[in-house]
Amino acid sequence: MDNQKLFVSSHAPYWHNGSSLSAKSYNIMLAALPAVIMGISQYGAPALGVIGLSVSVAMITELIMNVLMKRQVSIGNCNAAVIGLLFAMMLPAATPWWAVLTGAVVAIVLGKEVFGGTGANPFNPVLVAIALLMLSWQGIMNFDEALANYDLGFIMNYPLATLKYFGVSAASEFSAFDLLMGRQSGGIGATFGLGLIIGGIYLILRGMIRWEVSVSFLAGIFVTALLFNAADPEKYATPIFHLLTGYTLIGAFFLATEDSSSPVNLVPMLIYGVGAGFLTVLIRNIGAFVDGVVFAILLMNVASPLLDKIRPKAFGKGIEHA
């Protein structure tokens, strides 16, 4: 060959639509910002501290695991940062540093790295860490106890705890508008309903999360809560209350939609979402825990690979191929 010009040779396709995991991570963090900023403005420096610590510990842990497991350094795709951020958003602002540190390490190590890293986790890593904190140190995840020293000018009782221990009449003191506008106690970035909804809609429109999961999750909660409420309005709260309290909205738009642990086909996504919504209300109304989102989504995560077996018939299936 008389010229030494080398061409890049590779297999088709030669076009790519430009999407990437890092772009998705940045967008998820961007979408979470309204709720995060609201949390920081309400709780001040402690909230910022929890978020900063959680994100940095998550990223450093990922880096350490990359080195230990002799794998490509993957903090650049910011998946660890997203996990750290979402984890912090679910914590009360007064969480002690060691609990943040433990949770962030657990999320990265037990939540995803032991399974093989990003994409291989059967559970949502954030929820693994939250579940561990809930089961290990009850006081930390008990918002009424953790936020006892805060008075932000609205009812500082955790709405779902109020519902569980004082009944529907006590819970009816919370107006839906206050709940929507973040005037409720709870996780740093989990209380500002409007912000979470705006972030969620942004992610759906950009195709970063799947609307099927979010919508079916909310529908599952709504319908189940409606049935309970219709059966006994004295005992069970209205569907709107369930939609706007606890981890419902952050769950619908940021947790249930996690790629690796959720199904990809249409029908499975709907079953997964509705199932998680149903279990959430079931746990809240008749279960032992105040909020059911964490365990409901974790349980549906387990079912996800099985659900994904329900899929449309492939093209030309049954034809002898060659």
Partner: peptide, 20 residues
């Protein structure tokens, strides 16, 4: 890239032949 699949499902929903 040599990165593993993250199971986002874009390919599954875009596939004209319904291949998982």
């Amino acid at each position: 890239s040599g990165d593993p699949c993250i199971n986002c499902g874009e390919c599954v929903r875009a596939c004209p032949a319904n291949v998982p």
